[in-house]
Each structure stands twice: as structure tokens, then as C-alpha cells.
Design a binder for these strands. Structure first.
Length: 933
DNA sequence: GACATCACG
DNA sequence: GACGTACGTGATGTCC
């Protein structure tokens, strides 16, 4: 039973970031022996935690303790002052991957580990210290950070752990010349070069303290500044009064940070030796684990830290796959053995088998686990008994299965344990299956996403592809087990012996891939891409997909009927014009009628020998004949009906009344998402008739849909990457970018701009993003090729950065075999050195990839930050359409959401990339998607 | 299952 | 000098 924090209780607050940086700088750059992961700071951090614990079990031991971390580098202080901490150096590359490990270390030591997005650790510490004091308890802050000294006094003190020196009120006075309640006044005057707090120029701590002690406090000092005798000092204070007041706001800690935990949650907990040893073993800390094992009176873990013999041929490759070695787990005792092994290891590969491919409707059938190569099991849960004489199968469960509920009860703590890493191949699928039965799987690794980060553009990232390529093993195909067509069965009907071999192998393959990929991420320099842009998308997208969007069936159904009628009428008209009946939907038949029977000019046969009858061809013909125009009309309706108004109705989930798409994270080579089943990223908008389909995408009663989209994000990124001053200036001035391009290219003043000239410039702008060619532009604008080439030449002349960018990008791709986004995502270009027509394709793709890919990275960053940023707002993120996010939000909170979400989106590049062009986001809201846009 | 077509950014 | 050509996706219908 937890007691309310109050008198007699004693809280320790450890400044986690200070520990980390001290540990990092105190130790040489150690790496984990088996795979080269940098590990020095984690080692130092663990040592410091252990020393802290050893030193704090005496009579004055704390009753409550927490390690507090910073989270996110953008805080409310950046809102007040954009230069806050601006000259702070970037985190060293080999420290970055160690940060999450220090959090895991804290948890492994069974010490509360807290952080709040958008707040500095100092603010959380201030909040907790003030709360502890208010409740009559005591608090010691373990840090030597002078910014925290304002909190000291009345039951709160600080401990400099390095010097083992307590800092009380007198200690603060020693440092600042004033007592804690005036510390912020002194800091406001003196400023702080480390945090880039300006203060008053020329005034340091000594002078500041002198002034504050003379006048009492900062406000009085500023009001009476004209009384100061020294002329220079007087002028400085008068002149910089605003800057000083701002500085005070920057240094003043926020003791009202919203917390998602309470003081009671921080009660000191007994160590969990198993968890701690597993973590230390994973980190391969020999000495430290022995020392800690001694103090805990347990056996130290056995650490196998033999490095792989050759970097690119790890030994996981050598162990043959043996389906007979896989274990069929059929009862709680057997499962417990596996769970114990998982705890020893600290990680496990997990795979789920289900009744289908749609995570929203498929049911869990069984779970497979793997803890080391070749050692995997399958836990069948609801397989049906097979009976040869019953064609429809039996509802009876097969023998040899433990109860579903019991298995889940045992596995849930493991799957949710923050100190055990769950490894999967396409984890979003499994996470959604588990989420539906109340299990929140975390933390995770995903081999599909690791491959995507390292090999994007080289090949697909499905398990079979990866296994064949990297393990030289073809997994058992699923087809023979399930059959195909009408006689196909679901996995719960697969006999257990076969199911074990198939399912356990998947977990085995996943674990082997993980062991191979994990150390390679660092070498390929894509750790940050994987950890910041790929892996965090899994929970975000899983949540969006599970939420779905409400679609009104009646609206779609009415539109389908209207389309049917119009199509029937058009069909009659078309047959009359053609002189005979034919299948209007057949391009082949249409081509024969147009070019053979009617003898129209301009018939061109493609590589298959059929006439081309695409929209561009028909549009040209439409100026002379009526038939092509009617065909175009019919095709538009046919498209809308079959792909949208009909098909979408079939995708409405009967349980939720909503449509749940699935996003593939690793589908598009550039980093974009792709949406399938159904594709909700290509819902019509360009034509008026199509746009009305968006009226069927609605908000629930009492809510509205909010759409936020980046304005011209790819052109802005182009302006930054290719360094185009004219374009940057135009964006800075908020100009119409296509009109500005037109003005620049055709020497037409902006106030004389015509829509047609602007349209041409717009086509050129897009052409540049796509790796322009004279031919392509000529075809798009329907102008002579020579004229199009003239436009391009002129564009290069007016924006010389473009040519440089294109040449540099092609050269980079040829040299390295990949191109990169601003955030380090690599897109491989295997065909870049090809000869013949392939070469052109590859070059244009290489030019486009960094632009499209950077835009994709930006919105990914925004999406990853969105859940924390919008916490407390009754809103849910529903869809992403490349440069747009769609939310559903309570009516009263729409403006709140727009404010917060826009801020996240516009600043999504910070702090990794400082764009020369600001990103702007347009917002709209309404009862349906058409209105919101 | 390949191909053509067309919806989106 | 000729080749072909805007970048990235997914779903549908026809035809073999």
C-alpha cells in the first residue's frame, strides 16, 4: 500500500543528463565487444548509479528517488527566445545511441525514470522539489547545476555528487553572493554563455550580486537604474532592461510542469537482480556485473562477448536451420522456461500467427518466440482440431494447446517490460494484433525497418527477401500450408506439427536478421534514421490505423447510383458515335475503333502492339471528334465508381463503422509512406466531381475534421538544398512562388502576370523537382521541344544553383551508389551507372529522391512528436497524405489543436536541420474532409 | 499476372 | 548520333 508523500519522507532527484555527460567525458570511448556499439557513457552511468546506491542505504536514506531526463530539445524557452541554447554543440555521434540505454539502465536498477516532452529536466526537478517541500517532506537534488540553486532552502538542498559536497543556502550565497530567492535576479543580469542567456553585457555574477544586494531585487533595480553612479553600468541597465527581463524568464524554472506521475510513484523500490543482471550482461559489463552481483548476493551473469570473426560474415550465418529443433510449447511450465530465458537475455524475437492479413479483423492464432539462433518455439493457442470426414472443419480445439488467456497473462508482462526488447519483422502488424487484446508491446526493434534504413532502394524488405539475401536460407513458404483460391484455409486450421515448423522458423529468421543488422546500422551510419524516423513510426501508425476514419456509406451509395446512370447514358452515346457496340472499358477495342475503323490520325502503338488511348491522347483527339471526349467522361466516372464509391463501402469495418487503411513504412524508396487496403492517399480532389467523394469522409457527432498541409514543401526544400537565393527570398516574403518564377523567367512584372504564364512556370518548377528534360516539359506543356528546352536553359541561367545541385547529386550517386536526405536517410541508386535508357531514369530518380525524401522525413518527425505535443487535447491523428495530416477533434478544441499541430509541423526539421526557408502550414476544419481541406 | 489507365502528392 | 524521357505511389479492369 502506498503512503501519501508527506512529513518524514525524503526525496532524491538525480539530474540524469548531468550524469550522462559526466560519464561520457570521464571514460574513454569504450565499445561493446561483440558488435562495436559505443557503450562508454552507459558504463560510467551505471557505475555512478551503483555508487549512488551504495552511498545511500544508511540512516539518512531517501524514501523516494527518481532520475530525471531531458526530453526533446525544443521547449517553451525556445518560444520566448529562439536563441536559447542555440550555441550549444551538437551531441557527439557516439553518445547519441547511448542516451536511450541510460534510461534502460535506470529502469534496470529499478529506479524511477522520468521525462516530459518539451520540458527540461530542470523544470521537472523544480516541480517535484516544490511539491515535496509543500507536503512537508525533504528533498535533495543530486546535481551541481547552478540553474537549480534557486530551489535551495526550506527542506531542499543540493548535493554535488563528484565533490560529495552539500549545497545549502550558505553554499548558494557563496556561489552567487545572494540567497536562493534572488539567484534568478543575479542570473538575469549576469547571463549565461552556456545556455546563451544574454543578460546585461559587461555584468558578471559579482557585479550583479552587488547591485541586487544594494537595491533589493531586480525590478527595483531596473526601475531605479538611473540612480546608479557608474555611468557605463547605468546605461547598460537602462538600455538592456527588456533583454534582462527576458533573461530572467529564461533562467526561472517552471515549478508547474504538468506531470504524468506523482511523488508516490517515486517510492524507493527493492532492486530486481534478474532484470539488472540481464541488462548488464546485454551491455557486456564484466567487472561491473560481478561487483553488483556481489553486493546483491547473486551469481554474476555469463557474458559471451566474442566478437564476430569477420565483420560482414557473422557466425549467425553458419548455424544451419533445423526445423526439428523448434519447440512446441503446450503448457504453462514449458512457457515459463522460455520466459525465464527471455529475462536472462533481455530480448526476444516475437512473431504472431493470425487468421488473416488484415490486423483489424484477424484473430491471434499462436505466438512464436526466439531467444538465440536456432532456438525458437511456437505456442499454438486456438488451432482447430482436424477431422478428415468433416469438410467444414471442427470447432473443437486441437490437443496440445494451453489456454489463450493463460498464455497472454504470462506473456503480457514480458511484452510490456521496458527492459526487454521485443524484436519483430514488420512489428506494426504484431503490435496491432496485441493492442487489440490489451497488450502494449514496447520497446521494440524491427528488422524490416533496419533493412529499410540500410538498404532502401536496393531491394524489398519482406522476410523472405531478407532471409534469402542475408541468411542464404529460403523460409518455408506459407502457400502449401494454406492452399490458395477457394480451398484456402486459415492458419488456425494448419496441423500443429507443420505450424510449429513454419511459425518458429519466422521468429528464428527474425532473430538472426536482427543479430546481423544491429551492429551494421552504426557502420552504415543510419542509426539515427532508424531510431528517429523509422522505429518511432510503428506505434504512431498503429494507433492511427486502429482509429480509422468514419465514412458515410449512404453518401457513397448515392453517388455510386448517380454514376451508374450517367455512365449508362454515356455508353449509349458512345456506341452511337462509334457505330457499333463494344466494351468501353477496353483500351484495346477502343484503339481499334478510333484508329482503324474511324481512321483518326495520331494512332501510336506501344511496345505490346496496342494503340495508346491514355487521357493525353484522347484529349488531343477531342478537339476534332466527340467520341474521345465522351470516352474521357465515361472513364472519369468509371474510375470514381469502381475505385472509390463502390470499393470504399466494402472497406467500412462493421464493428467500428470506420475505414482502416494500412500504411507501409518501408514501401516507398524515398521515405514516403504508402497507404493500402484501401489507399487513402489518392482520394480524388482535383476534379469537382471527384472532390465530392471527400464529403463521405466525416467527423463523428460533436467533432470536426482538421486538415493541416505543408505549403510547397518540396520547392522550399529545393530552395534550401540547391541554395537558390531568389526562391528563398520569395518564400521569406510570402510571395506566390510560381508567379515569382514566371516573372523572373519571362521578364513579366508581377502585376502583369497572366494565368497562362504562371501555369507554365508552375510546370517548370515541378519539372525541376522531377529532374527536368526538354522532352518531358514539352509534352506536359504541349509546346515544341525546342521551346521547352529554351525555358529550361533560361531557368538554369536565372537559378544557377539548380544545375550545380543536379550535377553534384548525379556525381555523388555515381560515386557512392546512393543519395541522401538532409536527415541522413540513404536512398540507393543501383542503376545510376547503367547504360542506355535506364540511365536517364536512374538519374532523375536520384535528383528527385533527396527532395521528396527530405519532405518525407520532415513530416515523419512531425508525426512522431505529435502524440506528446497534443497530449491533453481531445484529438486523434487519422491520416497522412505525404504533406498533409488529418485529425479528428472535439469541436471546442479545434483551434487549440491547429495551434499546437501547426507548431509541431512548422518546426519539425529543428533542431537537426536548420532550413534556410521557413516551413508554413495551412489549416482548415469542417464536418467532412472536403470542408476541412 | 502483365499491362494500361488514372487517382493522389 | 540515337535512344527514350518528367518523381513517387496503389487499385482497377481487360486480356491472355
Amino acid at each position: 500500500m502506498t503512503e501519501t508523500f508527506g512529513k518524514g519522507h525524503y526525496l532524491h532527484l538525480i539530474d540524469g543528463s548531468a550524469f550522462i555527460f559526466r560519464a561520457y567525458h570521464a571514460l574513454p570511448p569504450l565499445t561493446r565487444k561483440s558488435d562495436g556499439l559505443p557503450i562508454g557513457a552507459v558504463s560510467g552511468f551505471c557505475n555512478m548509479l551503483q555508487r549512488y546506491i551504495d552511498g545511500n542505504n544508511g540512516s539518512d536514506a531517501p524514501t523516494h528517488v527518481a532520475v530525471i531526463f531531458d526530453k526533446g530539445s525544443h521547449t517553451f524557452r525556445n518560444e520566448m527566445y529562439d536563441q536559447y541554447k542555440a550555441n550549444r554543440e551538437a551531441m557527439p555521434e557516439d553518445l547519441r545511441p547511448q542516451i536511450p540505454l541510460t534510461r534502460r539502465a535506470t529502469e534496470a536498477f529499478n529506479i524511477a525514470c522520468e521525462e516530459i516532452e518539451g520540458y527540461e529536466a530542470d523544470d521537472i526537478i523544480a516541480t517535484l522539489a516544490v511539491q515535496a517541500r509543500a507536503r512537508g517532506g525533504r528533498c535533495t537534488i543530486i546535481s551541481s547545476d547552478k540553474d537549480l540553486m534557486q530551489l535551495v532552502g526550506d527542506g531542499v538542498d543540493m548535493l554535488d555528487a563528484m565533490k560529495n559536497k552539500v549545497i545549502d543556502r550558505e553554499g548558494v550565497h557563496e556561489k552567487f553572493g545572494v540567497y536562493p530567492e534572488r539567484v534568478v535576479d543575479v542570473q538575469a543580469l549576469a547571463g549565461d554563455s552556456v545556455d546563451n542567456v544574454p543578460g546585461a553585457p559587461g555584468i558578471g555574477i559579482k557585479t550583479a550580486a552587488l547591485l541586487i544586494n544594494e537595491y533589493g531585487d531586480l525590478e527595483t533595480l531596473l526601475e531605479r537604474a538611473n540612480e546608479i553612479k557608474q555611468p557605463k553600468r547605468r546605461e547598460t541597465l537602462i538600455q538592456h532592461a527588456d533583454q534582462i527581463r527576458l533573461s530572467k524568464k529564461l533562467v526561472m524554472l517552471d515549478a508547474d510542469t504538468p506531470l504524468d506521475f506523482t511523488l508516490e510513484d517515486l517510492e524507493v523500490r527493492a532492486p530486481d537482480p534478474g532484470k539488472l543482471m540481464a541488462f548488464l550482461a546485454e551491455m557486456e559489463f564484466r567487472t561491473l556485473s560481478k561487483r553488483i552481483a556481489d553486493t546483491l548476493h547473486v551469481d554474476p551473469p555469463v557474458i559471451d562477448d566474442t566478437p564476430p570473426s569477420a565483420p560482414d560474415a557473422p557466425k549467425v550465418d553458419d548455424l544451419p536451420f533445423d526445423p526439428e529443433a523448434y519447440v512446441h510449447v503446450s503448457d504453462a511450465e514449458a512457457l515459463q522456461v522460455w520466459i525465464d530465458r527471455i529475462h536472462e537475455r533481455g530480448y526476444v524475437a516475437v512473431d504472431t500467427e493470425t487468421t488473416g492479413l488484415n490486423e483489424m479483423t484477424a484473430d491471434l492464432v499462436g505466438i512464436s518466440l526466439a531467444v538465440e539462433p536456432g532456438q525458437a518455439c511456437y505456442i499454438p493457442l486456438i488451432h482447430k482440431a482436424s477431422s478428415s470426414d468433416d469438410l467444414f472443419g471442427s470447432d473443437d480445439l486441437a490437443e496440445g494447446q494451453m489456454p489463450l488467456a493463460q498464455a497472454l497473462e504470462m506473456l503480457k508482462p514480458v511484452l510490456e517490460d521496458a527492459s526487454i526488447l521485443k524484436i519483430g519483422q514488420n512489428m506494426k502488424y504484431d503490435a496491432k494484433i496485441f493492442a487489440r487484446i490489451g497488450i502494449a508491446v514496447a520497446p521494440i526493434d524491427d528488422t524490416m525497418l533496419m533493412s529499410y534504413a540500410m538498404h532502401g532502394g536496393l531491394h524489398g524488405h519482406g522476410m523472405d527477401t531478407l532471409s534469402e539475401r542475408y541468411l542464404h536460407h529460403s523460409p518455408i513458404p506459407i502457400k502449401p500450408l494454406l492452399g490458395s483460391g477457394k480451398s484456402a484455409i486459415t492458419f488456425d486450421k494448419v496441423p500443429l506439427d507443420k505450424a510449429v515448423r513454419y511459425a518458429a522458423e519466422d521468429a528464428d529468421v527474425t532473430l538472426r536478421l536482427w543479430q546481423m543488422f544491429k551492429p551494421q546500422l552504426h557502420r552504415a551510419q543510419v542509426t539515427r534514421v532508424y531510431e528517429r524516423l523509422e522505429r518511432p513510426m510503428v506505434p504512431v501508425l498503429a494507433e492511427m490505423e486502429r482509429t480509422g476514419i468514419k465514412v458515410d456509406r449512404d453518401t457513397l451509395s448515392r453517388m455510386s447510383n448517380a454514376f451508374s446512370q450517367k455512365m449508362a447514358a454515356l455508353e449509349d452515346e458512345i456506341h452511337t458515335l462509334a457505330g457499333r457496340k463494344f466494351n468501353v472499358g477496353s483500351p484495346k477495342q477502343l484503339g481499334e475503333i478510333l484508329f482503324d475503323e474511324m481512321g483518326l490520325e495520331g494512332g501510336k502503338k506501344g511496345k505490346t502492339g496496342a494503340y495508346a488511348t491514355g487521357a493525353d491522347v484522347l484529349e488531343d483527339l477531342a478537339t476534332e471528334h466527340e467520341l474521345p471526349a465522351r470516352i474521357l467522361d465515361w472513364r472519369q466516372l468509371s474510375k470514381l465508381k469502381s475505385t472509390y464509391t463502390d470499393a470504399l463501402q466494402d472497406h467500412i469495418n462493421p464493428d467500428t463503422g470506420r475505414v482502416h487503411t494500412s500504411y507501409s513504412i518501408a514501401g516507398a524508396s524515398t521515405g514516403r509512406l504508402a497507404s493500402t487496403d484501401p489507399n487513402l492517399q489518392n482520394i480524388p480532389i482535383r476534379s469537382e466531381e471527384g472532390r465530392r467523394i471527400r464529403e463521405a469522409f466525416v467527423a463523428e457527432d460533436g467533432k470536426v475534421l482538421v486538415a493541416l498541409d505543408y505549403s510547397q514543401i518540396e520547392l522550399r526544400i529545393l530552395a534550401h538544398i540547391a541554395d537558390l537565393p531568389a526562391l528563398k527570398q520569395a518564400f521569406a516574403d510570402g510571395q506566390d512562388i510560381h508567379a515569382m518564377t514566371a516573372s523572373e523567367m519571362f521578364d513579366v512584372p508581377l502585376d502583369e502576370m497572366t494565368p497562362d504564364i504562371r501555369r507554365q512556370a508552375k510546370a517548370i518548377n515541378f519539372g525541376v523537382i522531377y529532374g527536368i528534360s526538354g522532352f518531358g516539359l514539352a509534352r506536359n506543356l504541349r509546346i515544341p521541344r525546342a521551346q521547352a528546352q529554351g525555358f529550361i536553359d533560361r531557368y538554369f541561367e536565372r537559378f544557377p544553383g539548380i544545375r550545380t545541385y543536379m550535377d553534384d547529386t548525379k556525381a555523388f550517386a555515381k560515386e557512392h551508389g546512393f543519395v541522401q536526405t538532409l536527415f541522413g536517410r540513404r536512398i540507393h541508386t543501383p542503376n545510376i551507372n547503367a547504360k542506355g535508357p535506364h540511365a536517364g531514369f536512374a538519374q532523375r530518380a536520384a535528383i528527385n529522391a533527396p527532395i521528396q525524401g527530405t519532405a518525407a522525413d520532415v513530416i515523419r518527425r512531425a508525426m512522431v512528436r505529435m502524440p506528446d505535443a497534443t497530449r491533453g487535447i481531445p484529438a486523434r491523428m487519422l491520416l497522412q497524405v505525404h504533406d498533409e495530416l488529418l485529425f479528428e477533434v472535439d469541436k471546442g478544441a479545434a483551434e487549440d489543436l491547429i495551434g499546437v499541430a501547426r507548431d509541431v509541423m512548422e518546426n519539425a526539421a529543428d533542431p537537426v536541420v536548420k532550413l534556410d526557408v521557413k516551413l508554413t502550414v495551412d489549416a482548415g476544419q469542417g464536418a467532412n474532409w472536403a470542408e476541412a481541406h
